[in-house]
């Protein structure tokens, strides 16, 4: 049974989330502020943390930074804010994904499942996302077993997205991974390569979804079965 920790100052929200999660077999603990949340995290060793960004006192962002000093437990950000900057900052501080309140239960559970899937471990030379298969050993890519031709940059880009399939990856994170060591602004190059990749993946491969001002998410057709109408 996996353990979830909810850090949110709204009691009603915590109670509801507890009901939703317990009905899915999670063992739930909760905390009403950042300080308590950090204590609970150390004490309970949860498998996943749901963290509200707008906490009183110690901000959610601060809690996240403190958590990341000693654990890489998956963290899902809950936020009512529209400010893209805060979300990007949270993601770059190590949050795994976010949902914006009000969110649907299905969307929340789908995100939790994705971020709890063990983070990419380099035990296999293959990454599979829906119909897409990446052979890291030979630098080859297949959609429904048909090989697609990729340039080295496109391959690196697709690998960066596929390793985090279903999860949001910020523009800076992609650029750091694909163009590491090159200091010039690569955001334009990123757009160009995303454009090429989309064409090569076609209609049968996974989709590269843009979230304005934040980054990209590689969604396999199976992931898209989950309704995500409130993604904003």
């Amino acid at each position: 049974m996996s353990k979830a920790l909810i850090i949110d100052d709204e009691q009603q929200m915590r109670r509801l989330l507890r009901m939703v999660l317990e009905s899915r077999g999670y063992e739930v603990s909760e905390a009403a502020d950042g300080q308590l949340g950090l204590q609970e995290a150390a004490f309970q060793r949860p498998d996943v943390v749901l963290l509200d960004l707008g906490l009183p006192g110690m901000s959610g962002l601060e809690v996240l930074k403190r958590l990341r000093e000693w654990t890489d437990v998956p963290v899902l950000i809950l936020s009512v804010r529209d400010q893209e900057g805060v979300k990007v900052e949270a993601l770059e501080c190590g949050a795994d994904d976010y949902v914006t309140k009000p969110f649907g239960t299905a969307e929340l559970l789908a995100r939790l499942t994705v971020i709890q899937r063990r983070r990419f471990t380099r035990q296999s030379a293959e990454v599979v996302v829906g119909t897409l298969k990446l052979d890291l050993l030979h630098h080859e890519a297949f959609v429904e077993t048909a090989p697609i031709k990729l340039t080295p940059t496109e391959f690196a880009l697709l690998k960066a997205l596929a390793e985090h399939a279903g999860r949001i990856v910020t523009q800076n994170q992609i650029i750091r991974q694909v163009w590491s060591g090159q200091c010039s602004d690569q955001s334009e190059g990123l757009r160009v390569h995303i454009n090429h990749l989309r064409k090569k993946l076609g209609d049968t491969g996974p989709r590269i979804v843009n979230e304005p001002g934040i980054g990209y998410r590689l969604e396999s057709l199976a992931d898209q079965a989950h309704p995500s109408e409130t993604v904003r």
Partner: peptide, 14 residues
Amino acid sequence: LKTPIAIIRTALDG
């Protein structure tokens, strides 16, 4: 304003 709306939404899903 948004918190109660979010709570209603989650409760309805339940």
